[in-house]
Amino acid sequence: MAYVDAITQGILLGGLYALFAAGLSLIFGVMRLVNIAHGDFIVLGAYIALVTVQTTGLHPFLSLIVVVPLMAGLGYAIQRWLLNRTLGPNLLPPILVTFGLAVVIENSLLMLFSTDNRRLAVGAIETASLSLGPISVGWLPVSTFLVAVALIAGLELLFYRTAMGRAFRATSDDSEIARAMGVNTRHVHSIAMAISFSVIAIAGVLLAARSNFDPFSGPARLIFGFEAVIIGGLGSLWGTLAGGIVLGVAQALGAQISPQMQFLAGHLVFFLILAVRPRGLFPRMD
């Protein structure tokens, strides 16, 4: 019974991991960029929500109307005026810049907020649960999972059914010809980053509502998101959900064995996938 419960919790946790992964996958899909500071921006989003809630008294979920535009603007600016100039045949510069950003964010948050654990109090939904037969699941994890599904469906639509999505894919295929076809690729990159940052903002608030966070919570979030991307398969947004679920379940089952095994089990599944199915479970990108 404990295992059924663990698997259910793991699946729901997978929704949160899919949110970490979706933003990462999106920008890799559009511009082959890996944002090492992805997790730190998630945590930054959580702190911005915290400050918003403290200063305005808004409900944490309502704080998203502040946090999402703020983060989207930040993402646009960082891409447009910082990262775009590092994109090129050499892979190192963008990694190094986002690596630098990660360290700057972590330590700035540390100086501003100390190492104290923080959390967003979201009220009754924190403890409310619903019974599914013999097991009971919390409303918060369930809502997180549903938000993840809705967001991924939305991103799929955007990517494959809209003019902006066409520009994303064309830029990804051949940015030189995309420019000759009138696509402003620097703007397209920045819009993609802004969307990634909007997902980051939502993920940050949901993370902060369900668990404690501190200035150094980011790297682990990056790693979970990354593992979900690789397990799910590169370039596939639904794959990130599958990857998130596999990772969440692996961690939940690992935690049943011992506390240390929680994260190690996730890493082991990641390495296992790399060994037997290096393109992930549902690859789309070639």
Partner: peptide, 29 residues
Amino acid sequence: EAMLRLGIALVPEGRRLFRSLSVEENLKL
């Protein structure tokens, strides 16, 4: 990216169609 709107278009060597776009999407873009 301003060239196309100005009125200069390119048919590149080797075609270089967008691989992940359908025929119609290539044209629509």
